[in-house]
Amino acid sequence: MKSRLGRTGFNALVAIIILYSLFPFYWVFKSSLESSFALNRQTSSIWPTQWTFVHYEAIFAVENFLRPLLNSMFVAGMATLLSVVLGSMAAYGLSRMPIKGKVPILGFILLVSFFPQIAMVGPLFLVFRHLHWLNTYQSLIIPYLILSLPITTWILTAFFSQIPADIEEAAMVDGATITQTITRVFAPIAMPGIFTAAILGFLLSWNDFLFALSFIQTPNMDTVPLALVNFRNAYYVHYGQIYAGVVIASLPIALIVLFLQKRIESGLTAGSVKG
């Protein structure tokens, strides 16, 4: 690629990639500032034609968008917490303890992440209905374990296996109890791995639409994707509000991704998980 042509082509390719990835976000931001009137007209400029914050006001004052934000954070957060606790335990057992059947167990956990979400919707709906759990937080937190627990366990098993066992054994020999060994010696070393697993588990739960669509029924329980799809009244889809909502909901996620990019990448490839 020494030729100038090669370099120009390469740079053009890089530019296209960045444009395809990021231009949509610019357009969302730009459109969120336009009036509803302008959004219903033919687009006239690539730049914002006005700076109005009515849509931002509307999504909080009229649509109460804070609620779905908190709902999503809570259900994804709880599912992540559960996944990290259960996943760390399992990973510790799998990587540290002399147990038989490690491969089948890991295989089973992987297999579960292949189970089609759509096939679980019906049975879970009937079970939750029977328990009067439809439209509750647990009706999302529990199924979200399917999304986050397998990847969490995989990442953590891979990560824990890389931590040399000598460190803990040495601590034990020095007279530390098992609990002390885990909390004082093992946990600090394992923290980055746990953190990586938690981010990915959280993002996978945050991504869900199908479970929320099927088990959530009133607006006050909507998660973020559901609320955005439902930004409408009986007659009208509020484009401006959707754009503003996407800006608000994507900012924290974009920041997470930018600051924790390395971790996410290593987590994704360590577990070979689905996106």
């Binding site: 007209r41 687009t43 945050w206 955005l228 484009y239 959707i242 996407v246 991704v257 990019q261």
Partner: peptide
């Protein structure tokens, strides 16, 4: 820049691209 779209929920991505293909806005 390629990682940010990956973190956007699928349903939201679909909603956005639907609006991007809207004749008007």
């Amino acid at each position: 820049s390629i990682l940010i779209p990956w973190a956007i929920p699928t349903a939201v991505s679909a909603l956005l691209w639907k609006m991007f293909f809207d004749i008007r806005s």
